[in-house]
Amino acid sequence: MLELRLVQGGLLKKVLESIKDLVNDANFDCSATGFSLQAMDSSQVAVVALLLRPEGFERYWCDRNISMGMNLNNMAKMLKCAGNDDIITLKAEDGSDTVTFMFESPTQDKIADFEMKLMDINSERLGFPEADYHAIVRMPSSEFARICKDLSSIGNTVVISVTKEGVRFSTRGDIGTANVVCRQNTAVDKPEEATIIEMNEPVSLTFGLRYMNSLTKATPLSNTVTLSLSSGLPAVVEYRIAEMGYIRFYLAPKIEE
């Protein structure tokens, strides 16, 4: 059986909000490594990888590896019924085709349980190749989301280029062009406001803004975002979830025909 008690229940709500538009159905895997998910978006352009480590849970009990297939829209509907401050517990009995979400208010005066049907999902485990990235950019997640949103009102794709100058986000559309350059900036009051650029060699990749905008829905999970870029490889857009793990999006670039 499985029982996972997460005091910061709001975090699971945010996780679902950040992936439910990208992925319809996915297997949540529960093992000694943690509560994880790996899924490809329906248009096969992006992969989501989530890990919530056992240490982040007040109670983390699963006596064997369990994979639970869930429709993420339905799961999001259920989690929307939990308050942002609620404690969320997931429970599943061995061999059961349902999972129960229990929501407790912080003062313990309201307890709700929602039972959701599980589904069978055949999904291949993907092998993520080890890569040395040409450039790694860490920046405030809100700034990255703002840039993607702004550029998507001008064009459909974004070219992300890292040079000695900084990281450049460019787009082009019927009404004109737009360029936003962020330079390395570590002279900030708080570390999460810094922009840090590690460049081994210059890199320039093109991505669909629709996907970029979709994955910036993870912004509430972390103050910072890390972009790892290499020519001809998917970008890795990572939001670290404080003390618990991460949500990573692998986004395929557009390639020359």
Binding site: M40, Q44, P129, L251, A252, E256
Partner: peptide
């Protein structure tokens, strides 16, 4: 001309 790559081409299924 750039076309959208499918993500699977980058990952070996394991």
């Amino acid at each position: 001309l750039k076309s959208q790559a499918r993500i699977a081409r980058f990952f070996q299924a394991s």
